[in-house]
Design a protein around this nucleic acid. Sequence first.
RNA 1: GCGGAGGUUGCCGAGCCAGGUUAAAGGCGACAGACUCAAGAUCUGUUUCCGCAGGGGUACGCCGGUUCGAAUCCGGCCCUCCGCACCA
Length: 912
Amino acid sequence: MNPSIERKWQRKWEESGIFQSEIDRSKPKFLITVPWPYTNGPLHIGHGRTYTLADVIARYKRLRGFNVLFPMAFHQSGTPILAFSERIRMGEKKTVRQYRENLSEYEEPEMVDKRLEEFKDPEKIAAYFSERIVKDFTYLGYSIDWRRRFTSADPFYQDFVKWQFEKLHGMGLIKKGEYPILYSVEDKNAVGEDDISDGDVDKVSVEEYTAVIFRGESFSLITGSLRPETLFGVTNLWISPNCRYVKFKMDSNTYVVSNEAFEKLGLQRSNIELIGTVSSDEILNQAYITPFDGRKIRAYYSSFVDPDNGTGIVYSVPGHAVWDFIAIKDAGIHIKPIYVVDLKNGEKTTVDSLISDLGISSLSDSDKLKEATQQLYKVEFYGGFLNQNNGEFSGLPVKEARDAIKSSLFKLGNGFIFYEVSRKAQTRGGSKVVVAVLKDQWFIDYSVDWWKKASHDLVSRMLFYPEFYRNAMHDAVDWLRERPCARRRGIGTRLPFNQEWVIESLSDSTIYPAVYSNTDQVMKIYSELGSFPEDLVNFVYSDDDNDISKYPEHIQRLAREARDSRKYWYGVDVRLTTSPHMSNHLAFYVMNHAALFRESDQPKGIIISGLVLSNSAKISKSKGNAISLLKIANKYSADLYRLFATVNADISSILDWNETDLSAVKRKYDAFLEIMDESHRYPEQSNRQVEDWFDTNFRIHRKEFIEKMDRYDIRGAYVSIFYEVINDLKYVENRGGDVNKCIESIRRDWILALTPVIPHTCEELWEKFGFDGFASAAELKDDAGETPDLRIIDSENYLQNIVRDVREIMKATGMTPQQIRIETCNPRIREAAVILLENRMKDVPVDLRSVIPDFMKNKRNIDLTNDRELQVLRDNLNYLSATFKCKVFADEARIEPGKKNAWPGRPLIRLN
RNA sequence: GCGGAGGUUGCCGAGCCAGGUUAAAGGCGACAGACUCAAGAUCUGUUUCCGCAGGGGUACGCCGGUUCGAAUCCGGCCCUCCGCACCA
């Protein structure tokens, strides 16, 4: 459908307000939502799939008599928009280029710079792209009630979020605690993925080291290890030859680490106090005691030790670490490895074997060393156990031993947790990224038992499509622990009980769909009062009967309306999104509802759609395969995209956007347009049987369509009602039926059934054929009770079987027949067949007994359903002749004792 | 490793949950024919192997099992993909 026609209908829908949903108690309600998009850039075909599917469902439910609400709002919380804006301000090339590209999709070239200038204000970015998304979605024909639009940064909404957090706080679900975060010392600030240079391509994470203390006479050394379970295998310590080591006091003991490590420790632990530098000789000149087994070991130099990794001191386990093994050889020290980890099933992956397998000769083979380390780590961690050299820990599997040794170590005061970054990283501004421990981080405590139980109960009640996500959701609920719920900066709502914190962007977006149910009233309350006071929020969104009589009458009225509205609409019937949201957003969504809302307001269903590929590749800006929704609507048309998104892949599987598949879909779509084009008349012909067959089949397709849609097998539904009906019409034409008549008889229902997917096309047709109102607002009834006459279908199947058999014979014999004679089962043989099928051999009339051997041969193919075979054949002789291009005769077969006979459903076919 | 999904005919992809009507929908590709001056588009047919009569063989990752009968149920194995978090 060309864009101007699509625009026309979009205008008409808007003018008529048919998608502005109001309470209508005569109909069942249906609320469908998609998680709000983050407004830092334009959306592409990937996002479009989710919204398209939601719109198809919304429109289908409307078609079936539901009062549907499909609302939408925008997400602005968090740091990315701020970060992008700041980078544009700083003139960072990559970001500027990206936004220039984004803008040139929408703007005349001369406007791009002006807009870009505006984007130095983060609010402008958010506002601009929200506006674009509304436009793009309108062009795609989505039936969204835009009156309910708002953003997560709106003040009235922030009051709602505050209420949510006060409630959670009151229920004891919010906690304070320590938490490691990525941090920049120079900027004195937490850093997120967006702040780190290359943070998006090469993620930086926090790693948990075990700091192990080796006591010495005048001071102790602290080492950092990822593998504390190898502690009994320590033979020596390593320090770097070019590093400044420092002495410091902690809990009245004196320790030594690298200068860099000391700085990091300062961000992670309190009460540490610098004493001064210490010379390497001092470190090398004294002995150290190993924890647990109290052996005396010494420290040596090795070049592989990095002062800026861990504590700058490494404990050496040559038996289980390749670096250490090589380093000992390198340094020419006479130390024998101690082996502490044995493998199950007698596996033989050891330090020695890895070194020889990979051909590692020195510490400079760092790539190979890394690989060997990883291999060894994997093998020993998952398949190893501690041997008899491990004191009280002997016999434990490595997985358990690690925690056992750790906690034992901590208890004895010989260790603590030390956090380190997973790789060296810098901020975009060039300052170093390290790990700091926040002492007073706010958490939502998702681990509370009663909360988990309530959530599991909710999950059990909900609908999941595909069903296997139900289990995934149960798991997600189990996995959730404490989640940090506030940050020091970013757009969003301040924590009501601690104003220095901004509520984190996923935590402020869990129960917002409730606001869709009464956006209008709630916004009015806010604008009248200048706030949305807690007691009013509580009145509107919970069923607590708190007293609101202190407010003016009209505010009270608005609040009551808002409450009624919530009661009518709320409880999201379907929330549709993609699987990456499972373990975060959707889990929070489910759990927060379980805590804050009563059952009728809780979510009813979740549908998860698969990913979208573009030309068989993951969509990414850098690959240039991120096709924007605007381009889709303009270049391909909304209806074609919608049809493609609906029909080319099941909801649960990957959808690959590519021109080949698209052109196949387009052909079908064009075929449909041609069918509906009245100037294109089909040949005047008539074949009652086929026309009845078509009619019956259409009723079956319509029934299947409804059944499949009702269980969200959207693709299946449209294969039935679109592809199969088109094929049926083609069949009618080939079989000499009156196609025009067939089309006319199904026109109304067919157009309606297709409206959810290709609404613009269908409105146009609806109007053309003189139906009243909008197709989008009409109702499609199912014809409950009417059972289709399956005998008509059977007759056609019978005929097609004959055609297939004849073809097979032609193929096998390689002959082109001059004439074909088809002889149907003799009535007496039919009677005999009935008897034989019941295994009553003795009841077969004597003169027919000689036919039994032939019966046994044909038994499998005998089919009694069609009792008017000859009639069917005679009615269709012309068709058969035309198909095989020769004369075709049909007769009743004679009985031929001892020879081949015609059986029910299995006539004799003779080619000459 | 844990959790989840999956391995189907040249390719993509249904079906398997409720075993037989499944050589296995649909699409793409390929081949042949029709139409056309030609190409494209469209339409018709073919597209596992064997077969001069509608038949038979082999097939749904591999190996076993249950069953009269398994792509479909059960057990084991191999392989692929996704998630494992604080990030929107």
